[in-house]
Design a protein around this nucleic acid. Structure first.
Lengths: 195, 195
DNA sequence: GTCTATAACAAGATAGAC
DNA sequence: GTCTATCTTGTTATAGAC
């Protein structure tokens, strides 16, 4: 199916050069067809982008849904760690996916319909609500410090986002080690007890 | 000076719509001149961008240089906190500056010379080295847990970046409260001592 | 479904008058 | 320094043959 190939290649270009920086000739050339042939599969450049974005949103939801389910039986603190590492490894494993995801969330194209941005925000809101629930469970179990669960969920999300963006910008270092180190800070703090 | 006005307006457009998404006609129109007049001040669109980027890089360096100096007399843990909050507040105070900074670092334009990206990386490298030194000092003073100072500096940087990008995407919530909450997690951890 | 050809337009950049 | 006019190139998109 050429439509599928088009999405794959378009994802690469949009992730790498951005929506405005990508021309349909680039995409067509990369899969060996001519530019007008794209219109047999997608009615416009934006239509192609929306198809790619839709796939990305589904993948995003699936990734945290699966990561949450995977650690369901764990105590809350271990579940959060599992979630953090699973999400980190998920995006680290595919840099193209990561770059597209960041671009879609942080700098969507100017003519991107508001519905897509809202869908992203809604998904993230659902994710944050789930994470906050795990925080509350951990506090009730006495395994996590008492605190504002919603804010803590946002803080953990910030940490994940920052880690991923740093990984996007620094392509060289040992990210898995840093992922665990970053998690340990969040878990145990950097301060000594007697400070 | 029209050249100065051009930089200010260009900064806004580049931050908001990106380099590729901004046309010289947009910029010219916003300050009330015509497109060709820009060429009396800058030899090309890229030349204008580089001028803006240069200013942004200086501002970036100055912000962490000043934040580091400001807390020089504090003990290491308080100094890190001061640094984190100063940097956070610095970028939160000017969303345009923040958006341009993120774009320049994470998704520079395709025709952006490698020198500019390298300059950014070098600046960040210097910053990370300074932060790592503060970590080491804190460990020697017994106020911070022993650990890999370089990795911890990166982790703290990730946290700041994630917080800022989250703030860029969610323009509504109370960011200063979340900034402090996020810091507390990093400082004291989320785990109870007896876990 | 893919192609050639072309329309319609926007963008960066230059020439030359004022 | 700013303008009008123009050039050139690149882009999205369509028409119509195969």
């Amino acid at each position: 199916m050429t439509a599928q190939r088009l999405q794959e290649i378009a994802l690469r270009f949009f992730a790498d050069k951005g929506y405005d920086g990508t021309s349909l000739a680039d995409i067509a050339g990369a899969i060996g067809i001519k530019k007008p042939s794209i219109y047999a599969h997608y009615s416009s450049k934006l239509d192609l982008f929306l198809a790619v974005a839709d796939t990305a949103l589904h993948d995003y939801r699936q990734s945290w849904r699966r990561a949450l389910d995977k650690g369901e039986a764990l105590p809350a603190d271990r579940r959060l760690q599992s979630l953090f590492e699973e999400m980190g490894e998920h995006f680290l494993a595919d840099r193209t996916k990561l770059a597209f995801w960041i671009r879609l969330w942080v700098f969507p194209p100017a003519d991107c319909p508001a519905g897509v941005r809202d869908a992203f925000q809604t998904l993230t809101g659902e994710y944050l609500a789930e994470v906050a629930a795990v925080f509350r469970a951990g506090m009730e179990q006495g395994r996590l410090r008492p605190g504002p669960a919603d804010d803590l969920a946002h803080a953990l999300f910030s940490l994940l986002v920052g880690f991923l963006i740093r990984a996007h910008a620094y392509q060289d270092t040992d990210h898995l080690r840093l992922l665990r180190q970053t998690w340990d800070c969040f878990m145990f703090g950097i301060k000594t007890e007697d400070g």
